[in-house]
Amino acid sequence: MDSAVELREIYKTYVQGIFKKKKKEALKGINLKIPSGSIWGILGPNGAGKTTLISIIAGLIYPDRGRVYVLGKELPFCLDQIYKKINISSGHANFLWSLTVKENLDFYAMLYGLSGKKREKKIDQLLDLFSLREYRDTRFEELSTGTKQRLSLAKAFINDPDLILLDEPTVGLDPDTAISIREIILWFHKKKGATVVITTHNMAEAETLCDEVSFIFEGRIKIQGRPEDLKKILRLGDVVHIRFSGEAPDLRDIEGIIEIEISDSYMRVIVDDHKLRIPELIRRFLKNGTSVERIEIDEADLEDVFISFSR
């Protein structure tokens, strides 16, 4: 599969102060290949380098070292050609305060060369898609955070980009708005087959949206892959809580068991995949003559991956 984005050995250090003595290494040798048509998550704590990374892909920051290829073309060459096909939206939406929603969209549509009826039609579609019609003539400074965010996304879709970069697209939004925005991202991705790169703190969001994720810590990609594979690789597993009466059976030889803790009539078993392992667990309890009173399952999520790295 072609790569929409390819980063090779990217290094970036910010230098501050009058004598340039303060140095902050933001990225330390990032290698990343994002296949065309995928939704790729970039996860990591504050200051990990997510925004720097997405800004490098957008050509807004130049790396100190390394090569950046976007849609088959190397940055910073061919910027104009690349910019026609990409767009960006940030979680903290900022636009010209005096312009209304329609005027802001008009302005950005013109930057992409849209004019006349074509522009009107595109803006009309976006106003409906992002439920912005009722705010059409409201100035940006008078909008709520959620509406500002929807406008930011609408602007990012204005040129039907092949690559869309979303920097924390649902940060600070209420759950309903966040869900609707995720649905729109998925809808757009499905309809256009565009590549979507998302940076987020929200693990549930990454799990819902992303085909693959990269965890970035202190400027390095620590691990990347499909969310379900990462859980396996890190042996995080699902936690099965079993309450029973009688003698606890020996479960250590069951395939896929990662960890077992027993106390009185409670057993905490970590398994690689609860759907595969629970039938065998129950069979062992029954074979042992132990009655199972209650089973609860906690599925491992990316939050756990995040925590395991943060530690």
Partner: peptide
């Protein structure tokens, strides 16, 4: 300056304009 004051500078620089 308008872009700087509204913190929207990057949007103009990620568009295919000169």
């Amino acid at each position: 300056l308008y872009d700087m004051w509204s913190k929207a500078l990057k949007h103009s620089f990620v568009a295919p304009i000169g």
